[in-house]
Design a protein around this nucleic acid. Structure first.
Lengths: 162, 162
DNA sequence: GTGCAACTTGAAGTCGGCTTCAGGTCAAGC
DNA sequence: GCTTGACCTGAAGCCGACTTCAAGTTGCAC
């Protein structure tokens, strides 16, 4: 019932099947995202399940998580047993919130943009996108936000060239 | 009808109102995203319309465009006159495609994740997310994609710890 | 048992998008 | 007219996510 040699992938095989470069996989291992055993000659051997783990990481990246965040998420899954329904739900919910927020932002942007196309943006004073400016506060190097509307500024004439 | 001094912003004022650091604004100028006049003493003075331009840039970044792409988009708008309906539509359409693609990817991800929560992911063999692995080809350093399904691999037992 | 592709390591390089720093200049309120 | 905070420049530094390089080792097919 142990792992036959067939169950282990070299880093090259994992790279080929995951679509990532071997250098990226070594990087992921250094970051604690994936793990490997070593042969007597010190070469990495990955369990096939690592493919899933890599897919998880890539998917998470696509929804905007940093590798550090992914690592944190993966660390919440138990190492010594299969993840339970609860374990998994906790991780999944984090993602869903993130995904929902992303989608919401994109749709807002899209609505604004559609409005702009409709109006031709020749009269910018009422344009949501163009007026999504000014007074956007920030602290540190995190995400910035853009506030819509700027009651302090009245209508402005449109200068040439935006 | 020329620009009164009131119409020009110092870099500090632009920074405060846009929520960006002055260093970022100088960077944007070097990248050709915004432009300024200079005082006799060589200090930058920005037209108020630069606030809109900055907002445009930030918005574009939020939907995933690089500054280089934003510059390309802005370059398609005329410098010498107000953008026409056509000018603007061309730029806006580029964005909409981009936004739609992003939303689509996120919703796909969400659907998969929802399925996972439903099944508890205790039986991973049929899980879309987990099986969104393997054979994801790539070329260069652009976006990777994840293919769903992997007919070559049969069901696998769930190893402990993912 | 040998040849060669695939592997190993640490260090350095790359890229985008900035920030920080050093050393100097400008503008405006008193 | 002086002080002081805002501004200038170029160069360097930083972060995440990798890639590239150099120099050496392993594993497997023949």
């Amino acid at each position: 019932m142990g792992l036959s040699r067939h169950d282990l992938l070299t880093i090259g095989q994992l790279a080929e099947r995951s679509g990532l470069a071997t250098s990226a996989l070594r990087y992921y291992e250094r970051m604690g995202l994936i793990h490997s055993e070593r042969t007597t000659g010190n070469q990495r051997r990955f369990a096939r399940s690592t493919l899933r783990r890599v897919a998880f990481v890539r998917a998470a990246q696509q929804v905007g998580l940093s590798l550090e965040e992914v690592r944190a998420a993966l660390d919440r899954l138990p190492v010594d047993r299969a993840p339970s329904h609860e374990d998994w739900n906790a991780v999944a919910r984090t993602w869903q919130v993130r995904i929902d927020r992303q989608i919401e932002e994109l749709e807002l942007m899209k609505r604004k943009l559609t409005g702009c196309i409709g109006c031709g943006c020749l009269s910018l004073t009422r344009c949501g996108l163009y007026n999504a400016e000014d007074r956007a506060g920030r602290a540190g190097s995190g995400a910035r936000y853009l506030r819509t509307g700027d009651p302090a500024d009245g209508p402005e004439p449109l200068p040439a060239g935006l």
